[in-house]
C-alpha cells in the first residue's frame, strides 16, 4: 500500500493565555496522497490557517503555542526534524500561497529578483540568466504574456490578479510535491478569481502537485478539490470525496453550512442556527474518503 504524501495524526494545538491554555485544534487527522487536491473548509477561526502554519513549522519557536501529533511527510517525521532540515524543505518540497498576494510578495524587490531567490533555494548555484529563463517560462504558464515587463516590476505596480498569478508561478517553479494554498484568490473579483483558480488547477494537475486547499468558500472548494475535510471549531466533522460531500452532506454542521449558502437560483435564505449542540456530533466519513487501513 502506498503511504500518503502527507499524513497528520491526532494534531492538537493550544495557545497559552492569561486564563490558561486556549485549545484550538482537538486532534485532527488529515492525509493527502501524491497529486491529490484536498480542501480544508470551515468558518473563520476554525483552525485552518494554524494547521498550515504547523506543517510549515511556523509555530516551532513560538513559546505560547503547544502542539502535539505526528506529521509524516514523504515518510519523514516533520515534527521531529531540526529547523535546518525543515528549512531545506520549504519552498522546494513544500510551498505556500497566501490570501493576499500583494502583501506576501516582497515590496522592495522586483519580481525577477524574487524569482531568482526562490530558484536559489532549490539550486544555490543557479545563474541569474538561467533563472530568468525559467521565470519567463513559468510566467507564460500562468498566462502572463509580457513576462519581461512583469519581471522588471515591483508587486505594487501589478494588479491583484497579476500578483496572484506571479505567486502561483513562484510557488510551483521548484516543482514541490505539496502546495499549501491558504484562501488563494479570496481578495480578488470573482471573474479574476475563477480564471486564477482554473489556471492553478490545470498547473497542479500537469505537475502532479498535491494541494492542501484552505478556504471558507464552499463553491470554490467544489470546483477545485477532489476530496474535502469540513472543520468546525478545531474538529474535523465530515470528510469524503467532493461530490459525496456536496450531493449528500451527512453531518449537521455540513448540512447547515450548505443550507446557508445563497443560491443563484434563488429560493431565499432559510433560518439556520449559527450554533448548535449537534455541530459537535461525531465525525462522518464517506466511503472513499478514508485512508484504507487507517484508524480514524
Amino acid at each position: 500500500m502506498n503511504n500518503p504524501l502527507l499524513k497528520i495524526t491526532n494534531l492538537e494545538l493550544g495557545f497559552n493565555t492569561f486564563q490558561g491554555e486556549h485549545k484550538i485544534l482537538h486532534g485532527l487527522n488529515i492525509h493527502i496522497k501524491a497529486g491529490e487536491r484536498v480542501a480544508l473548509v470551515g468558518e473563520s477561526g476554525s483552525g485552518k490557517s494554524v494547521t498550515a502554519r504547523i506543517i510549515l513549522g511556523m509555530f516551532d519557536e513560538l513559546t505560547s503555542a503547544n502542539f502535539s501529533g505526528d506529521i509524516l511527510f514523504n515518510e519523514q517525521r516533520l515534527d521531529l526534524m531540526t529547523k535546518a532540515q525543515k528549512h531545506s524543505l520549504r519552498g522546494k518540497e513544500i510551498s505556500m500561497i497566501f490570501q493576499d498576494p500583494t502583501s506576501s510578495l516582497n515590496p522592495t524587490f522586483k519580481i525577477g529578483q524574487q524569482f531568482y531567490e526562490v530558484l536559489r533555494t532549490a539550486n544555490p548555484k543557479i545563474k541569474k540568466q538561467a533563472a530568468n529563463k525559467i521565470a519567463i517560462d513559468w510566467l507564460h504558464k500562468v498566462a502572463i504574456t509580457d513576462a519581461d515587463r512583469v519581471l522588471n516590476s515591483y508587486a505594487f505596480q501589478l494588479s491583484g490578479g497579476m500578483n496572484q498569478r506571479v505567486m502561483i508561478a513562484m510557488a510551483l517553479v521548484n516543482k514541490p510535491s505539496l502546495l499549501l494554498a491558504d484562501e488563494p484568490g479570496t481578495a480578488l473579483d470573482v471573474t479574476v478569481q475563477a480564471q486564477t483558480l482554473n489556471l492553478m488547477r490545470e498547473l497542479v494537475t500537469q505537475e502532479n502537485t498535491a494541494v492542501l486547499f484552505i478556504s471558507h468558500n464552499l463553491g470554490v472548494v467544489r470546483e477545485f478539490a477532489d476530496r474535502v475535510y469540513i472543520i468546525y471549531k478545531g474538529r474535523i466533522v465530515e470528510q469524503g470525496k467532493t461530490h459525496d460531500i456536496f450531493d449528500n452532506p451527512q453531518h449537521p454542521y455540513t448540512q447547515a453550512l450548505m443550507a446557508a449558502v445563497p443560491r443563484i437560483t434563488g429560493g431565499g435564505i432559510p433560518e439556520i442556527d449559527d450554533t448548535s449542540e449537534r455541530y459537535y456530533d461525531p465525525i462522518f466519513i464517506h466511503k472513499g474518503g478514508e485512508e484504507i487501513g487507517d484508524p480514524v
Binding site: T191, L218, D247, V261, R263, I264, T265
Partner: peptide, 16 residues
C-alpha cells in the same frame, strides 16, 4: 459573464 463566474454548490445552480 459575472453570473457565470460565481462558484456554485448545487446542480440546479450549475445548470443555470
Amino acid at each position: 459573464q459575472l453570473i457565470s463566474a460565481i462558484p456554485v454548490i448545487d446542480k440546479s445552480e450549475q445548470i443555470l
